[in-house]
Each structure stands twice: as C-alpha cells, then as structure tokens.
Amino acid sequence: DIIVVALYDYEAIHHEDLSFQKGDQMVVLEESGEWWKARSLATRKEGYIPSNYVARVDS
C-alpha cells in the first residue's frame, strides 16, 4: 500500500472529497492526475485528496 502523510489541513469542497488535518496518514487507493482517492487511517473514510497536499511515507 502507498501511505501518505498530510502536509497541510484540507477542508473538503465537494461531497466526494476527504477532509484531513496536517499529520494525518492515508492509504492511496487510486492515483489519477492531481486528485487521488484515499482512505484515512484514523477515520477509515474514503474520498478524493489533492495530491500536492500530501507526501509519501517511506516504509
């Protein structure tokens, strides 16, 4: 799995977006363009995230 960590807070604009806080970790489910589908490890919610707001966690 690709794990990313939030670099900034993000408040969902559309209902399919995923809100998150700086430091939150998410599993990337699908990478396509600038918006990635991800699942929050904390809340288990899924939605689209702006890929420029996150960084990959080296395992």
Results as ranks from 00 to 15, higher is better:
D1H: 14
D1F: 15
I2M: 12
I2P: 07
I2S: 09
I2R: 11
I2G: 06
I2Q: 10
I2D: 08
I2W: 10
I3T: 06
I3E: 03
I3S: 03
V4G: 00
V4L: 05
V4A: 05
V4F: 09
V4Y: 12
V5C: 07
V5M: 08
A6D: 00
A6M: 04
A6Q: 00
A6P: 00
A6S: 03
L7I: 09
L7C: 09
L7P: 00
L7T: 03
L7Q: 05
L7R: 04
Y8D: 06
Y8E: 07
Y8K: 11
Y8P: 00
Y8Q: 11
Y8F: 12
D9Q: 04
D9K: 06
D9R: 06
D9F: 03
Y10A: 01
Y10W: 10
Y10H: 06
Y10F: 13
E11G: 06
E11H: 12
E11A: 12
E11S: 10
E11W: 10
E11V: 14
E11T: 14
A12D: 02
A12Y: 02
A12G: 11
A12F: 03
A12I: 02
A12M: 04
I13F: 09
I13C: 12
I13D: 08
I13N: 10
I13E: 11
I13Q: 13
I13T: 12
I13H: 10
H14R: 14
H14L: 07
H14N: 11
H14A: 09
H14C: 13
H14Q: 07
H14T: 10
H14V: 05
H15I: 13
E16F: 14
E16V: 08
E16P: 04
E16C: 15
E16M: 12
E16T: 14
D17T: 08
D17V: 09
D17Q: 15
D17A: 12
D17M: 15
L18V: 03
L18D: 00
L18W: 02
L18H: 02
S19Q: 05
S19I: 03
S19A: 09
F20W: 00
F20A: 01
F20C: 03
F20S: 00
F20R: 00
F20Y: 00
Q21L: 12
Q21A: 11
Q21K: 15
Q21P: 02
Q21M: 11
Q21V: 11
G23Y: 05
G23S: 03
G23H: 04
G23Q: 03
G23W: 05
G23D: 05
Q25F: 15
Q25N: 08
Q25P: 05
Q25T: 12
Q25G: 04
M26Y: 02
M26R: 01
M26D: 00
M26C: 02
V27M: 10
V27R: 07
V27Y: 09
V27A: 09
V27P: 00
V27T: 07
V27S: 05
V27D: 02
V27I: 13
V27C: 09
V28M: 04
V28A: 03
V28G: 00
V28H: 00
V28S: 01
L29H: 04
L29G: 02
L29T: 06
L29P: 00
L29D: 03
L29K: 04
L29I: 11
E30N: 11
E30H: 10
E30F: 10
E30K: 08
E31Q: 15
E31M: 15
S32R: 14
S32H: 15
S32D: 11
S32I: 13
S32E: 12
G33M: 05
G33A: 06
G33S: 06
G33L: 05
G33P: 04
G33F: 04
G33D: 06
G33E: 05
E34M: 14
E34Q: 12
E34R: 12
E34Y: 15
E34C: 14
W35A: 06
W35L: 08
W35D: 03
W35V: 08
W36R: 03
W36H: 05
W36D: 01
K37G: 02
K37L: 15
K37Q: 07
K37A: 05
K37P: 06
K37T: 06
K37H: 10
A38R: 01
A38T: 04
A38M: 04
A38E: 02
R39I: 11
R39V: 11
R39Y: 14
R39Q: 10
R39N: 03
R39W: 10
R39H: 09
R39M: 14
S40M: 15
S40N: 13
S40D: 09
S40P: 04
S40H: 15
L41Y: 07
L41K: 06
A42L: 11
A42F: 08
T43H: 05
T43S: 11
T43W: 03
T43C: 05
T43E: 05
T43Y: 04
R44I: 07
R44H: 15
K45I: 08
K45F: 07
K45S: 08
K45N: 09
K45P: 00
K45A: 10
E46V: 14
E46M: 08
E46A: 07
E46N: 04
E46L: 08
E46C: 10
E46G: 03
G47T: 00
G47N: 01
G47C: 02
G47R: 00
Y48N: 10
Y48G: 03
Y48Q: 07
Y48W: 15
Y48M: 14
Y48H: 05
Y48S: 05
Y48I: 07
Y48T: 05
Y48F: 11
I49K: 00
I49M: 02
I49Y: 00
I49R: 00
I49L: 04
P50Y: 07
P50Q: 07
P50I: 03
P50E: 01
P50N: 10
P50G: 03
S51W: 10
S51P: 10
N52P: 06
N52D: 10
N52Q: 11
Y53A: 09
Y53C: 09
Y53L: 13
Y53G: 06
Y53R: 08
V54N: 00
V54H: 02
V54P: 01
V54R: 00
A55V: 14
A55W: 08
A55C: 12
A55Q: 13
R56T: 07
R56D: 04
R56M: 09
R56E: 06
R56H: 09
V57D: 07
V57A: 08
D58L: 11
D58V: 12
D58K: 09
D58E: 12
D58S: 12
D58Y: 11
S59W: 12
S59P: 13
